[in-house]
Design a protein around this nucleic acid. Structure first.
Length: 151
DNA sequence: GCCAACGTTGGC
DNA sequence: GCCAACGTTGGC
């Protein structure tokens, strides 16, 4: 079980867009960065990801779950790029803004601060718990029971 | 809209 | 394989 952070400009694809996809989820296409791609290749089914709105909002708005391992990105003609599929799990009761993250000394090493341009980032368990706490999500909660049932 | 950070490209 | 030029991202 690992934790990640996915960034998206809400103009292009927002948390609400992912929520509308329901349990079927959505392929996380369009990543054209090797580091980000390698992170996606390392993802396992059931790994959880923060969903971060860049540019507009600049806040972590929810949690999504990896439901398919890395596979070729159909929006890519070169065959180099891959994507995972994710689905929305839970909205943050209180979105955690970039300013909130930067203001928290416990999160000073978070990739969102140190590698802010990277679109797919690893998140440490401690950081995950802290952001969940700030977002008023129970930190021990891995996933809501409704989302644990497969298929 | 500016600009810093940084990844990628391509000439050598 | 180095590194300068260039393009893109994304916060401010």
């Amino acid at each position: 079980m690992a934790y990640w952070l996915l960034k998206s400009e809400p103009d292009a694809f927002s948390w609400d867009d992912l929520t509308e996809k329901g349990k079927a989820g959505e392929p996380w296409t369009g990543v054209r960065n090797y580091t980000a791609r390698n992170h996606m290749k390392a993802m396992q089914k059931g790994d959880l990801c923060f969903f971060y709105h860049s540019n507009i909002g600049k806040e972590i708005v929810g949690i999504c779950e990896v439901i398919a391992l890395a596979h070729p990105d159909e929006t890519d003609d070169t065959g180099k790029w891959e994507c995972v599929d994710v689905r929305a799990v839970e909205r943050m009761p209180q979105p955690v803004t970039l300013a909130d993250v930067k203001a928290n000394p416990k999160l000073s090493e978070m990739a969102l601060v140190t590698s802010f341009r990277l679109s797919v980032q690893p998140v440490l368990a401690d950081e995950w718990a802290e952001v969940c706490r700030m977002g008023r999500l129970a930190p021990a909660k891995k996933a809501p029971t409704s989302a644990k049932k497969k298929n």
